[in-house]
Amino acid sequence: MTEFTLNGKTIQYDGDPTMPLLWYVRDLAELTGSKFGCGIAMCGACTMHVNGQATRSCSLPMSALDGATVVTIEGLSTAAGEAVKEAWQEHDVVQCGYCQSGQVMQAAALLATNAMPTDEDIDVAMQGNVCRCATYHRIRTAIHAAAKKLEA
């Protein structure tokens, strides 16, 4: 039995311990905002916050979650999260949008620990998140905008 919280709700899980968190969240908890992109933690589309850390849920087995706090894009409601979501819309970052839940989660985690990141900080924090539409420079702009919004 694994017990953890998902977006504030307590979950008791006693299924296949090797099932990745992503597939539990998508197929069993039926929260589909987090996306499947690669299955090997190389693209970031599945990024969730596990104990506050941006985490690739496609490669995290359910057995590792005992006592953990998991937040998905659906549950993202921190100040940084709200600022990021707003900045994303103000700058029309998205194109196909498929990777953007992961990008938003990664960016929100970055701003939670680094209130005013430089371009270099952003490159380091965000380079695990692939966007095939190459919205990268708008992602940079939107993160700076969100940081400014949080400072104000």
Binding site: S34, K35, I73, E74, Q89, V93, G97, Y98, Q100
Partner: peptide
């Protein structure tokens, strides 16, 4: 489509 794609609510085939 900015809002739904920035907040995880846009629906794809998956």
């Amino acid at each position: 489509d900015s809002k739904e794609k920035s907040t995880g609510t846009a629906q794809y085939t998956i």
